[in-house]
Nucleic acid binder design. Structure first.
Lengths: 228, 228
DNA sequence: ACATAAGGATCGTTCAACAATTCGACAATA
DNA sequence: TATTGTCGAATTGTTGAACGATCCTTATGT
């Protein structure tokens, strides 16, 4: 068999397009992340179905996907709602972050510099955005930083888990009415963590991460208070 | 408010009943775990729909749920198939296990004995089943052991992740034609790990877990060889 | 004020239909 | 014989309509 032919196997996934339900899910996921659909809001099958021009059945498939990602909540006979996180949810999300990001730090401290390329890029983007006062972008760069951090585990499943986790967290990020106060303090700490990693100082990097996540969690919990 | 009434809150989730799609998903998940639907097998909408007496639309919702759990694989215009794991998948699953179970070990070593109750119960069940030669039951007790181990993290999301992870692993457990060889050696090591935990020897427990998972992974990968 | 009943809206689910796509069989071609 | 083109059956992807069940609101009555 020809080599050039064999190479085509890599492009195989670009072939299988996506179904309507998946594309609808993509759109809704994006809207939710942007906060256009606020937590607690009900998503009417009728309204959204006609708005997107898809049938109720197809839309329900999309809802199932997002429900499984914990972005939507199904209430039987009552419809689907944008998920509302409780304080316990936030605590749990940070618990998981400590596990996943902590493992990444321990696992990759002292690795060759090129492995941190994506992390370094995120740090640089955050710094530039902060300089220019684009606090929204600081937030997204910060998210990319942690996504890249988790990716140091080298596990597709952990990557996916991290993506879902951060999507869930964004549900509650929107309670921060002042994005600057929430994101700015962490720009410097991102850099600090990266340097500890590159220097191979695993212990200190681990502690830096711990305090980092602890502070972020506290800020968040304090900002939205309600347990339910 | 009455105490007995307040307690009812715990049973609230049993109330909300489930939709047909979820119940169908439960049934199929069980069948897949039992190996009755072998990996690679196509699940015909027509066939399964009439067999279960549900419409194609409802069935497709169930398929979406299981697809998101990675137990089924959607191929556009071709149907859904029971997932076939590759060697990389197995490696990744064990990578995640090391992260989750490793965190549990570090997090709970030396905790008060009652926190290990569920773990101890799983160990005892496995031992009894092994004595009586019920190797199938040894396998399920072993799974319960690791589920309980992960639960030491005290995180609902990690519990759920672990459940899905183990369900995925079961897809490949069925390649072990001799369940005794696969499960027996680990009964003693479960007990050993538990004792290290109770004794608060975190370091050694961590190493025991590492070698434990390493050996299990190797056994598994060796047993089914194919990368695809 | 409170319980109850009626009505409307929406969900859960089914069914029938049709276009699009895949797959295998068979014929045509070199 | 090996490759390509074509046809038809089977199945999926998606839609639209339908109907009972359930929830929510509002009106009604005591």
């Amino acid at each position: 068999m020809n080599d050039a032919v064999a190479e085509l196997e890599h492009d195989r996934d670009r072939l299988g397009r996506s179904s309507t339900a998946e594309r609808v899910a993509d759109i809704l996921r994006e809207r939710i992340a942007e906060g256009l659909f606020a937590p607690g809001r009900r998503l009417s099958e009728e309204a959204i179905g006609t708005a997107l021009g898809v049938s109720r059945n197809t839309l329900r498939e999309a809802f199932r996907l997002l429900g499984h990602e914990r972005l939507l909540e199904h209430r039987l006979n009552r419809g689907v709602f944008v998920r509302v996180l409780s304080a316990e949810d936030v605590a749990d999300l940070y618990r998981v972050r400590r596990v996943i990001e902590g493992a990444a730090v321990r696992h990759s401290a002292g690795a060759p510099p090129e492995r941190f390329a994506a992390v370094r890029r995120a740090v640089a983007d955050a710094a530039r955005a902060a300089e220019e006062g684009r606090w929204q972008d600081v937030g997204t760069a910060n998210i990319r930083f942690h996504q890249a951090l988790a990716a140091l585990n080298g596990s597709p499943r952990l990557d996916e888990a991290m993506r879902q986790l951060l999507a869930e967290l964004r549900l509650v990020f929107h309670v921060m009415d002042n994005p600057r106060d929430f994101h700015e303090p962490f720009v410097a700490r991102n850099l600090e963590l990266l340097e500890l990693l590159e220097a191979g100082r695993a212990e200190e990097a681990g502690r830096a991460l711990e305090s980092y996540l602890g502070d972020a969690e506290e800020l968040l919990v304090r900002a939205f208070a309600p347990d339910r």
